[in-house]
Design a protein around this nucleic acid. Sequence first.
DNA 1: GGTTACATGTAAGATGTTACATGATTAG
DNA 2: CTAATCATGTAACATCTTACATGTAACC
Lengths: 174, 174
Amino acid sequence: MAQKNRLQYIILGLLNIGSKTGYDLAKAFDSDIGEFWSANHSQIYPLLKKMEQDEMITHHEIQVGQKLVKKSYDITDQGKKNFHEWLEEPSEADNSHDEFILKLYFIKDANSELLEEMVVSQLELRTDKLSHLQDQLADKFPDQASQQANYGHYCVLKHAIQRESGYVDWLKGI
Amino acid sequence: MAQKNRLQYIILGLLNIGSKTGYDLAKAFDSDIGEFWSANHSQIYPLLKKMEQDEMITHHEIQVGQKLVKKSYDITDQGKKNFHEWLEEPSEADNSHDEFILKLYFIKDANSELLEEMVVSQLELRTDKLSHLQDQLADKFPDQASQQANYGHYCVLKHAIQRESGYVDWLKGI
DNA sequence: GGTTACATGTAAGATGTTACATGATTAG
DNA sequence: CTAATCATGTAACATCTTACATGTAACC
């Protein structure tokens, strides 16, 4: 199987909001999206070219000032279809590059049925994960002595539990 | 500049704890380290070869059963030096693949001076980040209407704040 | 005897980063 | 006029994933 190419879906999601230049897209990773995903312009421009070939997006040109012509990209019907298919796929509980949060970012409607489904399945995943982590903590660091003997590892496990626990609480509040 | 090659340092850190086979190292990413970093055996075996060429590690062979000979890798003095240099470098506040946590995992001593320094500098980074996120929330979602209009984005920002806030609390407890 | 875990590798391709390159426009 | 930002690309390299490939050892 090929790799996920999640960047492609982020671009589709951003263009689904509105027409954007490669520069605009790159900037999005410095602010909002940057919270949970990263990409450089050198990755974005070639991908835009490829996505246009694949007919997920098109572009129109905009004259700026005297000489500069910028390309503003637009999502096609095919692109919209691909994007929605991705949104509806289940997301793994990965810690780095959280795909669930990525999808969530693109859900506009608070009452969406898809949102409800996504949250329920993510909540199950994260609750399981939390309980496994708690088991691990009890198993590996049952007493003060073991915690002190390998303090960094202990802290990291505590962090993972705190993170998952916060994640679960946050999910419950959605 | 070349890329970070953090995996190399994780391997050094694990071998610094004790001699391990490629298989053992790969397994570490299914449990402990897997909480915040990932790697497959197909990435590990070639890297071990390269690290041995670079004299950061060596290996000795262990006879298992009748036929199987496994390679157990050991860190060299040079490897230990490289590892400690990495530990002492400042860590960025990246969300995916958290390098700070990665380093922390390898700190054994709760009273280590390095730990103290690392935590202080990370706390500063994360506190700044949290306040930027809170500014963003106030700026982008000042009222209920704006929150409902773009619910996913709102949730994601709330998540980032909750995450950073939990991170800061956790750091303070170290 | 069969299944699961141990054990080690390579190959092809996808993805991501850093550096190289260039030039226009805007705000002060 | 000058600095920051806008704007678009390529090249080289590093990293990571998936699939291919093979065989042993331990447990039931």
